[in-house]
Design a protein around this nucleic acid. Structure first.
Lengths: 157, 157
DNA sequence: ATTTCACTGAACATATTGCCCAGCAGATTC
DNA sequence: GAATCTGCTGGGCAATATGTTCAGTGAAAT
């Protein structure tokens, strides 16, 4: 399973110049077009490539404040809480983590004041015992995958 | 600034079917091709759309374990720590947050055992005082943007 | 009344796509 | 050793999409 060296180069190329076509990729990688097409298909059915959705910047949408909230959930309320959080647009991401009934979610808001409204909406739900929020000030390493892809391709499995 | 209703529909369409072309989009949205092209260009130079990079699943790459680590940084060491963490491929994301010298980072690893290695590498650096890690068990809400886009488009700014 | 702006609808040459095929090399199986 | 698979090559084809330009239209701003 996983990826070989050519897959790695393909992914890195795709990450750097996402809009180039199959033909151009085959030129850059020095392989036949059919090969690139086959690799891409495989990577997608593999699930390695989940999709090519546009990466939208919440800040540019008017939500410049990001925060992470750790939620403590009352036993047995997990399912309800999940469903509740899924209905809040400002919840961009939700994880359940080790340690009691804990969840971690990524929030955005229009301002620090607005964040209060979002948090109230998030925690204003029966089943959430306690919430602690950390507001993001800087993002020195934005979500990235290239270094990991390169490592995985070198391990060459 | 921000986006109007057509931009919103464009983004949602693009998020749902990322590989469709400009022409097909114009057909779906019922507007001229030039309009879609102009909107897309604007959204990209706006920074609303950061890019179209492939969404790669770390699990499919052989890194099925995700964790969030909260790091406490010694005063004045922030820059060094950032640089250090940027060199670790398993650090997918790094944020500095409110509250003392705290950082939050997203990690992946090949296994729970491997996570220990990653954490050792992350915290094995002068300037990191303390680390507390939460391992992700489930991901009920994967990173998403559509609901926020829809809300922003309705607010119609 | 005039200017500006975004959108339309069309045209054109060029490039890319999806699909087909035959051939080839290396590895695996019998 | 011979047969079979699998992945890659390199080519050809019709259909489609792209980049670009243009003139015309309507609405809003000056």
């Amino acid at each position: 399973m996983a990826i070989d060296h050519l897959d790695g180069r393909l992914l890195v190329l795709l990450a750097r110049e996402p809009r180039i076509g199959v033909l151009e990729m085959s030129r850059r990688l020095g392989v036949a077009r059919g090969t690139v097409q086959a690799r891409l298909d495989r990577l997608q059915s593999n699930g390695v490539i989940r999709g090519f959705g546009p990466q939208v910047d919440p800040a540019a949408l008017g939500y410049p404040v990001t925060a992470f909230a750790t939620l403590q959930i009352r036993q047995g309320q997990g399912t309800d809480v999940r469903a509740h959080l899924a209905t809040v647009p400002e919840v961009l991401e939700l994880h359940t983590t080790t340690g009691g009934g804990d969840m971690l979610c990524r929030l955005v808001a229009r301002s620090n004041a607005d964040l209060q409204r979002v948090i109230d909406r998030v925690v204003g739900f029966d089943g959430i015992v306690r919430a602690s929020t950390a507001i993001v000030m800087e993002n020195p390493v934005p979500l990235r995958i290239i270094p990991l892809v390169e490592q995985a391709a070198e391990d060459d499995d």
